[in-house]
Amino acid sequence: MENKLTKQELLIQQATEYYNQGDHSLGYRMLLDAALNTNKSEVYKAALAFVEIYEKEENDKSKILDDFIICKETINNFSIEDKNIIGQPILKGISIEKEYKRGKFKLGPIDIKLHKGDIFGLVGENGNGKTTLLTILASLIEKTSGDLSYSFLEHSDDIYDLKSKLVYIPQRTSKWYGSVIDNLKFALVHHGVTGEKNHLLVYMMIARFGLWKYKDLKWSELSSGYKMRFELARTMLRKPEIVLLDEPLANLDILAQQVILEDLKMLAKSHVNPIAMIFSSQQLYEVEKVSDEVIYLRNGKPTDLLGLKTQEENSLIIELDTTNSREDIEKVFQEYELEQIEYNGGVYIIYFKDNTITFNNVLSIIASNNFTIQYIRDISKSTRRFFVY
């Protein structure tokens, strides 16, 4: 009977597979995560030796596979026990409300339960309470009513410990002075890590978050994407248990968004230090791809208080971007009972009453009638359908 792989061994195996398949960046980041899991200086040194080689090879990363393997074998020398803490409760909010004396806006009541390893997306139009909810959960502003509690691995009433375990990253981060590396080293000193361990850990975080070539740059010399990577690196040095991010994808290009989302998921699902995360964004589809649950807010209220159907009973809702007319759509689907067709944001939202029709049926009908399509998506279970009103 084969021995079951530990989660650390599985992570290293996946990193190797990705690297061998040509997904060098993903395999590289996963390998560094495995190295960080060991918390061993000698492993950090071996990993950083590989980082130097990796960063210098700009053309063909497959050429340095042997160096990847050497680093991997060093990490494999240290076994990591499976902690099995993913899924443990860490935050609970009951009937959270916030009401402002000036103005008519009121948030909630909102119930929320967050577990280690959870990634929750927070969506809604601007001014509907996303930032307010995040700052309440981060204990940065007082709620008007309701109960909010945390279940950290180690209980402490010290406010400094709370701020270390519970991190809020705003959309507009504060300007800092000096270089990337100096700021990260300074941040780690504040958490009691000095000397060689400080040096190694900071360099590991710089490599992990793609800041190697930018470590000597100042705040004004970094793009929005690299400022966000810096914030993530600084945050992870604190070993938080909950991370709350307000619009982390704002002002990022598509590639940067995908890398950040990938990193957020990898960090949250870590088998050694899983993190509970909530992040807000206007990038609805990107949020839904990585989130375990999506919270939709309108006028400060969540879905269940808005009278919105959380799932139309097996009915199909399609978002369609086409140059064909409404009449064309009605004609090809005349055999099926359409509930309504709405033109929203430059695309058609098509609701089917007939619960026997499937998305594959729709694709077949559209193809056989030679529709010109730019985009089509099944939004039956997506929060996108709540933005149509």
Rank of each mutant, 00 (worst) to 15 (best):
Ser95Ala: 13
Ser95Lys: 03
Glu97His: 10
Glu97Ser: 13
Glu97Phe: 12
Lys98Trp: 12
Glu99Phe: 14
Tyr100Gln: 04
Lys101Gln: 15
Arg102Thr: 11
Arg102Ala: 05
Gly103Pro: 14
Gly103Thr: 08
Phe105Ile: 01
Phe105Leu: 03
Lys106Pro: 07
Lys106Val: 03
Lys106Ile: 10
Ile110Val: 09
Lys113Asp: 15
Lys113Thr: 10
Leu114Tyr: 09
His115Gly: 15
His115Asp: 14
His115Pro: 15
Lys116Ala: 15
Lys116Asn: 13
Ile119Leu: 14
Phe120Cys: 02
Phe120Arg: 13
Leu122Glu: 06
Val123Ile: 05
Val123Asn: 02
Gly124Tyr: 01
Glu125Pro: 09
Gly127Asn: 06
Gly127Asp: 07
Asn128Val: 04
Asn128Met: 14
Asn128Ala: 09
Asn128Tyr: 06
Gly129Val: 04
Gly129His: 03
Lys130Thr: 06
Thr131Asp: 12
Leu133Ile: 06
Thr135Ile: 07
Ile136Glu: 04
Leu137Asn: 07
Ala138Tyr: 02
Ser139Asn: 11
Leu140His: 10
Ile141Gln: 10
Glu142Ala: 12
Lys143Thr: 08
Lys143Asn: 13
Lys143Leu: 08
Lys143His: 01
Thr144Glu: 12
Ser145Pro: 11
Ser145Gln: 11
Gly146Ser: 02
Leu148Met: 05
Leu148Asp: 11
Ser149Arg: 11
Tyr150Lys: 04
Ser151Pro: 10
Ser151Gln: 15
Phe152Asp: 02
Phe152Trp: 06
Glu154Phe: 14
Asp157Lys: 09
Asp158Ser: 11
Asp158Leu: 10
Asp161Gly: 13
Asp161Pro: 01
Leu162Asp: 07
Lys163Ile: 02
Ser164Cys: 12
Leu166Trp: 12
Val167Gln: 00
Pro170Gly: 08
Pro170Tyr: 03
Pro170Ala: 00
Gln171Arg: 08
Gln171Trp: 05
Gln171Glu: 15
Thr173Lys: 15
Ser174Lys: 06
Lys175Ile: 14
Lys175Asp: 04
Tyr177Ala: 00
Gly178Ser: 09
Gly178Tyr: 06
Ser179Asp: 08
Ser179Val: 07
Ile181Pro: 06
Ile181Leu: 03
Asn183Ser: 02
Leu184Ile: 04
Leu184Gly: 00
Leu188Glu: 01
Leu188Ser: 02
Leu188Arg: 05
His190Cys: 10
His190Tyr: 09
His190Leu: 15
His190Gly: 13
Gly192Tyr: 00
Val193Arg: 00
Val193Ala: 04
Thr194Asn: 08
Glu196Val: 01
Glu196Gln: 10
Lys197Pro: 06
Lys197Ser: 05
Lys197Ile: 11
Lys197Gly: 03
Lys197Leu: 05
Asn198Cys: 04
Asn198Gln: 13
His199Asn: 12
His199Asp: 09
Leu201Tyr: 11
Leu201Cys: 10
Tyr203Lys: 13
Met204Thr: 09
